[in-house]
């Protein structure tokens, strides 16, 4: 089975590849809608995709 690329994920979620990269690098916090879409596309619970760090840099 082929691994999902950033472009694949971006296309299925409806964002740009640059936004996927920014989310991965913790440079952008997506909206709830986008976060749910990412979790659905990846087939995992939301809390497995995204965690809140109260001591984060931003």
């Amino acid at each position: 089975m082929r691994e999902m690329t950033q472009q694949d994920l971006a296309d299925r979620v409806g964002v740009t590849r640059q936004t996927v990269i920014a989310i991965e690098q913790d440079k952008y916090s997506p909206s709830l809608e986008t976060a749910f879409k990412v979790a659905i596309v990846l087939g995992v619970p939301l809390e497995q995709c995204f965690q809140y760090d109260p001591h984060g840099k931003r």
């Binding site: 409806g14 964002v15 740009t16 640059q18 936004t19 920014a22 997506p30 909206s31």
Partner: peptide
Amino acid sequence: RNRITDERD
């Protein structure tokens, strides 16, 4: 090729 804009844009 890909000219979409999203919420970050």
